[in-house]
Amino acid sequence: NKFNKEMRNAYWEILHLPNLNEEQKNAFIQSLYDDPSQSANLLAEAKKLNDAQA
């Protein structure tokens, strides 16, 4: 299933973003579980936030 793979990839990438705190990571990961079809968008948002907090 495409979403499972996308979701897993997004999950791991978000988990390893160095500039997000636990609360931010948890919020993105919760959103992933709530709507796996948004994995790519959530990952993009997480990366933007990560870069902004660098």
Rank of each mutant, 00 (worst) to 15 (best):
E45H: 06
Q38R: 13
Y33T: 05
N21W: 11
E13N: 15
A54E: 08
N9V: 14
D35T: 07
E23A: 07
A44L: 10
N50Q: 03
E6R: 01
N4W: 10
S37F: 09
F28Y: 10
L15G: 03
W12H: 11
F3Q: 03
N26P: 02
Y11W: 09
A46I: 03
A40F: 12
Y33S: 03
N9W: 15
S31D: 14
E6A: 04
L17K: 03
E6T: 02
P36A: 06
I14L: 06
L49Q: 15
H16M: 07
K25M: 12
Y11Q: 09
D51H: 04
D34Y: 07
Q30D: 06
N1R: 01
A10W: 02
A27E: 12
A46Y: 01
N19R: 03
R8S: 07
S31Y: 07
A46N: 00
M7G: 01
P18A: 11
Q24A: 08
W12F: 14
I14M: 09
Y33P: 05
A46G: 08
Y33G: 02
D35Q: 10
L17D: 00
L32M: 04
N21D: 13
N19L: 04
N41F: 10
K2P: 09
F28A: 05
P36W: 06
S37N: 08
R8D: 02
L20S: 00
N50M: 02
E45W: 11
S31F: 09
N1G: 02
M7R: 02
L42I: 14
W12E: 08
E45T: 13
D51N: 04
P18L: 08
F3L: 09
A44P: 02
S31Q: 09
L49I: 05
N19G: 09
K47M: 05
N26K: 07
E22M: 15
I14K: 00
L17F: 09
S31M: 08
A52N: 13
E22H: 14
W12R: 11
Y33F: 15
N9A: 15
F28I: 06
I14N: 00
D51Q: 13
K25D: 00
A27T: 10
D35P: 01
I14H: 00
R8P: 02
S37K: 03
K48T: 10
A46T: 02
A40K: 13
L49N: 06
E22K: 09
Y33E: 05
E6S: 02
A40G: 11
W12M: 05
A44H: 13
L20D: 00
A54F: 08
K25I: 04
N19H: 08
K5R: 03
K5F: 01
L17R: 02
D51I: 10
A27D: 13
S39N: 03
E45A: 14
A44I: 13
Q24K: 07
P36T: 04
E23R: 15
Q38V: 10
L42H: 07
N4H: 09
N19Y: 10
Q38H: 11
Y11V: 11
N41L: 06
Q53F: 09
E23I: 11
E22S: 15
M7L: 08
K47D: 03
N21P: 05
F28S: 04
A46E: 00
E22L: 14
Q38I: 10
P18Q: 12
K2I: 07
A10D: 02
N50A: 07
P18R: 11
K25R: 13
L42M: 08
P18F: 13
K5N: 07
N1Q: 03
K47F: 05
L42W: 14
L20N: 00
K5P: 06
Q30H: 15
Q24F: 06
F3T: 04
S39Q: 02
A27V: 08
K25Y: 04
A52Y: 13
H16V: 05
N9G: 04
K48N: 11
H16G: 12
K48G: 12
F28K: 03
S39W: 15
L42V: 11
H16Y: 10
L49D: 08
L43P: 01
P18V: 07
S39G: 05
L43R: 11
K47Y: 05
Y33K: 03
N4I: 05
M7H: 05
E13A: 15
A27Q: 02
E6Y: 02
R8H: 10
L15P: 00
E23W: 13
Y11L: 13
N1H: 14
M7I: 06
R8V: 10
S39M: 12
I14G: 00
Q53H: 11
R8G: 05
P36E: 03
Q24D: 05
Q30A: 15
P36D: 02
K47W: 08
K2T: 10
E6F: 02
D35L: 09
L43D: 01
M7P: 01
N4K: 02
L17T: 02
P36V: 04
E6G: 00
A10F: 03
I29P: 00
E23D: 09
R8M: 10
A52K: 13
K25S: 05
L32Q: 02
N1W: 00
A27I: 11
E6K: 02
I29V: 12
N21Y: 14
E13Q: 12
W12T: 10
F3R: 00
E13H: 13
N41D: 10
A44S: 11
R8E: 15
L32T: 01
P36L: 03
D35K: 07
R8A: 15
K2S: 14
S37H: 09
K5Y: 05
L20Y: 00
Y11G: 03
F3H: 13
L42F: 10
E6W: 01
Q38A: 11
A54G: 06
S31H: 06
L49F: 12
K2H: 12
I29M: 03
A27R: 10
L43Y: 04
Q30V: 10
D51K: 12
N21H: 09
S31L: 06
I14D: 00
E45F: 08
A52E: 08
Q24G: 03
N21I: 12
E45V: 12
Q24N: 04
Q30I: 07
A46Q: 00
A52S: 12
S31P: 04
Q24Y: 07
N21E: 04
I14A: 01
E6M: 02
L17A: 07
R8Y: 04
E22A: 13
D35W: 06
Q30E: 05
H16P: 01
A44Y: 07
N9M: 15
N19V: 06
F3D: 10
K25F: 06
Q53I: 12
L42R: 07
A54H: 09
Q53N: 13
L42G: 02
S31V: 06
A54N: 13
L49E: 13
E23V: 12
D51Y: 12
H16A: 12
S39A: 13
E45P: 00
L42N: 06
Y11M: 15
L17Y: 07
D51A: 10
F3N: 12
D35N: 13
N26D: 12
A52Q: 14
A44W: 06
K25E: 01
N26F: 07
Y11S: 05
R8L: 14
A10T: 09
Q38G: 07
D35G: 03
N50P: 01
E22V: 10
L43A: 12
A46V: 03
W12L: 03
D34P: 06
I29K: 11
N50T: 02
L15R: 11
P36S: 05
N19I: 08
Q24M: 15
D34Q: 13
Y33M: 05
